[in-house]
């Protein structure tokens, strides 16, 4: 079947199978930041924005995204660059495999709630697993970013 959608601001027309997952669709179009970490919607590595909302691309048919706006980290480099340095300053990126999903969902969090408490950060990012960092450094990084904005 043929679908049309907007991927990182660019109009895309593509032939897909009915069961092509959005995750595989965007990876096949060069959005390699999007990762698969499980098959059970538990890890959050495949997070993309669909019409601005964070969703799991592993559990979304590409067909359903037809007519919608899909954004991956490839399309949000500047918004990400604004805060990821603070994560790097903690060393909390570690292996990096979960980073894109985590960064995407953090972008969504900060758009929705620009001044979250620590508990709000934990709750919003609960669906993003990380096995390396122990999460605390990610939290410190986000907190440092938020503090720097207040000071700046």
């Amino acid at each position: 079947m043929e679908i049309k959608l907007t991927l990182n601001g660019k109009a895309v027309t593509a032939h897909i199978e009915a069961d092509t997952l959005l995750l595989d669709f965007v990876r096949a179009r060069g959005c390699l930041s999007v990762k698969r970490g499980c098959e059970t919607e538990n890890c959050g590595l495949c997070t993309v924005l669909l019409d601005g909302k964070p969703i799991l691309s592993c559990a979304t048919l590409a067909a359903r995204a037809a007519g919608h706006h899909v954004q991956t980290l490839e399309g949000l480099q500047e918004e990400a660059a604004d805060f990821v340095g603070f994560i790097a300053d903690q060393g909390a990126e570690q292996c990096g495999f979960c980073n894109p999903g985590f960064v995407m969902n953090t972008i969504a969090l900060l758009r929705e709630n620009p001044d979250p408490t620590d508990d709000e950060i934990r709750a919003y990012l609960a669906g993003n697993l990380c096995r390396c960092s122990g999460y605390e450094g990610q939290l410190r990084g986000i907190r440092a970013y938020l503090d720097s904005k207040k000071e700046g």
Binding site: L32, S33, V34, T72, L73, E74, Q77, A80, A81, V84, G85, I87, A88, D89, G91, E93, C95, G96, N99, P100, V103
Partner: peptide, 12 residues
């Protein structure tokens, strides 16, 4: 910082 940190965080 880890030498590869920013590339990883930006999903390269």
């Amino acid at each position: 910082r880890k030498k590869d940190a920013m590339q990883l965080l930006l999903g390269k």
